[in-house]
Amino acid sequence: MIRVMLPTHLRRLANVGRELEISVEGIPTLGAVLDALEDCYPMLRGTLRDYVTKQRRPYIRFFACKQDLSHEPLDQPLPEEVVTGVEPLWVVGAMSGGCANI
């Protein structure tokens, strides 16, 4: 099981606690975890990445094992500590961002 930590807003949206456990079939890549996460919690679709292109939203970050995985290929296997459940995968709202014109 992959442990996933969501930011507060997305925890409320998905009506879940601080930490989720996601089961992934095959090689546990970042893309596979996001696919499984969206399958389990469809309300998260569109909040982490674009529906069509699957591109990460600009102000979303993925951290694990004190590394920023946001710019890594989606098909790259996750670190062993994440795969074994020792460390969680963090979904984070970036510190920057948020334009407020209306």
Binding site: G46, T47, I60, G93, C99
Partner: peptide, 22 residues
């Protein structure tokens, strides 16, 4: 700007809400 668009609807005047398509 971080998490994109979500649409909600309520059937009880806003006491409870459900997420719909985005």
């Amino acid at each position: 700007d971080w998490f994109g668009q979500v649409v909600h609807r309520s059937n009880d005047g806003g006491m409870t809400w459900e997420t719909v398509g985005n």
